[in-house]
């Protein structure tokens, strides 16, 4: 039991919170056919973090968050600029932007490799969920012990905060979000400010991606933005039900994925563990696969 508290409780909770947060936003991304903006933004978190490290000289988390946030805004601005000034199609503009920024991040990273930074490309992609150890979590009692709680890995309160922020955003702006997702022109006509809500949505996607980035790596973020929401989309025609499904899928993938990664190999007699983030993302993909095969609302609407 104390093993579980120490090694597994925090990663599990973090994974579930991130999964639910990303899946919640993902519902709107999938509906708006903007799924790939999550992809683009999670790629550019890397250059943001590297630049902020080079500027401040340390891996302070506030500076890193700020750097990644700025880079997300730069990305959105760059995509828009290239799209408008160069008259380039959106997806191509996105491709130009995020690959270039990611390349810049990798280059800067390798450049500063000699100084011994604890940051590398693989870490950024895979994340390191397993490293979130709660040393004070020796038993159930620790849950009520203030000094033990103070020793919680700082990623936990951070992702919790981001989760609350995202839920609050969706709750406050739900009408605007829904209107803008289905009919931007109508939304503009009733002053639902679709452009502003769009920008807010993208910013929150960035915030969620960055908070998750440090804890679980960027690849799981992309999977969680898209897979649960896409699977839920195949289950129902009602938005509220769809969101509920997506949350359920996210929790299922997170818990099952974490358990499988940690204990799965042991069941087959191997003394090793798999990447938790990778397994969670793979499972979310399998859930989507199942929905594609058997989801009640999987067929395209008859035009």
């Amino acid at each position: 039991m104390s093993d579980f508290m120490m090694f597994s409780l925090v990663p599990l909770v973090v994974a579930v919170i991130i999964g639910m947060t990303c899946a919640l936003l993902g519902n709107f991304l999938v509906l708006r056919r903007q799924s790939l903006i999550g992809d683009a933004i999670s790629h550019v978190a890397l250059p943001g973090i590297v630049v902020s490290f080079i500027l401040t000289g340390m891996l302070a988390s506030t500076a890193m968050m700020l750097g990644a946030g700025v880079s997300a805004l730069v990305t959105v601005a760059m995509i828009e600029l290239i799209r408008r000034l160069g008259r380039v199609e959106t997806s191509a503009a996105m491709g130009v932007t995020f690959t270039s920024l990611f390349a810049l991040g990798v280059l800067l990273l390798e450049w500063h490799d000699a100084t011994g930074v604890h940051l590398d490309v693989e870490h950024a992609l895979y994340g390191n969920l397993e490293s979130l150890i709660w040393f004070e979590g020796t038993g159930l009692a620790a849950l009520f012990d203030p000094t033990a709680l103070a020793g919680l890995p700082r990623q936990l309160p951070r992702v919790a905060l981001v989760g609350v922020l995202v839920v609050a955003f969706v709750a406050v702006f739900r009408r605007h979000l829904v209107l803008g997702s289905f009919d931007p022109d109508f939304a503009a006509s009733v002053r639902a400010r679709p452009a502003l809500v769009d920008l807010l949505l993208v910013s929150l996607v960035a915030v969620a991606a960055i908070a998750a980035f440090e804890a679980v790596g960027s690849i799981i973020v992309i999977a969680m933005f898209i897979c649960p929401a896409a699977a839920a989309r195949l289950m129902t025609d009602r938005l509220a039900t769809q969101i509920a499904w997506s949350q359920g899928f996210a929790v299922l993938a997170s818990v099952l994925g974490y358990v499988l990664a940690g204990y799965g190999p042991g069941w087959f007699g191997f003394d090793a563990s798999l990447s938790a983030a990778g397994t969670i993302a793979t499972l979310s993909g399998l859930i989507l696969l199942a929905a594609c095969v058997a989801g009640p609302r999987r067929h395209p609407a008859a035009a």
């Binding site: 999938v30 056919r33 903007q34 799924s35 790939l36 999550g38 992809d39 997806s91 992609l125 690849i219 799981i220 992309i222 999977a223 933005f225 898209i226 897979c227 896409a230 989309r233 195949l234 983030a277 990778g278 397994t279 969670i280 993302a281 793979t282 979310s284 993909g285 399998l286 989507l288 594609c292 989801g295 609302r297 999987r298 067929h299 395209p300 609407a301």
Partner: peptide, 20 residues
Amino acid sequence: RTRLGEDAAIGAVLSTFFAF
């Protein structure tokens, strides 16, 4: 074959395959 757009398909495939 499904109602999902190509963007969602691309995102789902790239993240799932890469994660695997």
